[in-house]
Design a protein around this nucleic acid. Sequence first.
DNA 1: CTGCTAATATTGACGCTGTCAATTTACGCC
DNA 2: GGCGTAAATTGACAGCGTCAATATTAGCAG
Lengths: 210, 210
Amino acid sequence: MPSSPSNQSYHHGSLRAALLSHAMELLDTKGIEGVSIRAVARLAGVAHSAPANHFPNKRSLMSALAARIFNQLENEVLAQMETTSGQRAERVMAFAEAVVAFALTYPHRYRLLWRRESLIDHDAELHSAMEAVYALLIGTIEGEDDEFTTSLETRAIAIWSMVHGYLIMRLDGNLMEKTDELTQAPRHRAIITALLEGIGGGPSGARRDC
Amino acid sequence: MPSSPSNQSYHHGSLRAALLSHAMELLDTKGIEGVSIRAVARLAGVAHSAPANHFPNKRSLMSALAARIFNQLENEVLAQMETTSGQRAERVMAFAEAVVAFALTYPHRYRLLWRRESLIDHDAELHSAMEAVYALLIGTIEGEDDEFTTSLETRAIAIWSMVHGYLIMRLDGNLMEKTDELTQAPRHRAIITALLEGIGGGPSGARRDC
DNA sequence: CTGCTAATATTGACGCTGTCAATTTACGCC
DNA sequence: GGCGTAAATTGACAGCGTCAATATTAGCAG
């Protein structure tokens, strides 16, 4: 009966799913370095070498984990964007809001997404899971006539880069600690605003919130 | 004679500097995971436990390495910015240009700078080395009257985030491969341009280069 | 110049890791 | 019912970071 995970038979039945689940648990509690094949196997109650049947090496396990995390992120972004059907700026802000919220809630999961040394270089499943999130981002800025200096794709990468760069530094506490302790959470809103309005041309508004 | 590294005496003389040098060499050739205390000691020709006298643990070694890398980056940025004494946009571009060039030349060094799990949380030397680069960035955008929607600090973090986010994804090959193979290197110029001109308000120029 | 102390390097051990090989178990299909 | 094969087990290996005990030497006090 493959549907019973706690089966005490020799064969686990659904070990692959159980391994991923325990790996996620370890990732959340102990961080990326805390995820080891042997520890995961221990949690699943199987021998240290049992995972080898489902994941040929550690990177394979971590890649499957990362793909699952990208899928979660996609769902979070989708949910957040359903609450907003407004203008381009609001849609971009909703995207950023969802990613920031996810990363701050599950910092280690978010970090793993970019830990390329721990992942398989061109894993198909992982790649398509990431592309799905990227497609959502494209959806936030396309549709209207594009007469910007930069292309649609460049602007998408710009948004993605900024959100990601901000998060990595915030999660690590670099540069941010002294600033965010004062202004609290919505700093990322100001960051996105800076991107939307530009920082090189001159004043484009009166209100300053951060 | 502490100035002779290849001294065959029992005491190395300048082991700490030699260890850092060999660690940098390993970092460049084998990546972050390739830097191990024992491998570094092997390269230096000392016992596997000799580094413990100079670095209490691995994070201490990696932090010293990262601080040295930040210092190198600071010099690169300084050199690049001396070639440009132009407007704000050109200074920002020069900063980005220097960081991008450094990261593409020494990808593993750049990656280590943000590998917080491998570094000491609040190492003083590392922190001040990073702040020095941050101060250069502040210098690129301050001076003129600030009447932007966002604060000076927010705009600095925005630039830094965008450059960093772009680089991490480009080094990893995420999202970038299919785009950069077409447009080649100067994609990051377009990214910075997007930030300078803004992406939310509407067209602000006619020329489109990427 | 002698002697002592503290710094530095060595050896050895421990538990942990990822990975491989050989073996045992049991499911499912003919 | 037997059998092939997938799945799990045990055991081993080298490499890792770290600690403890030991050996060597540099530098300074007298």
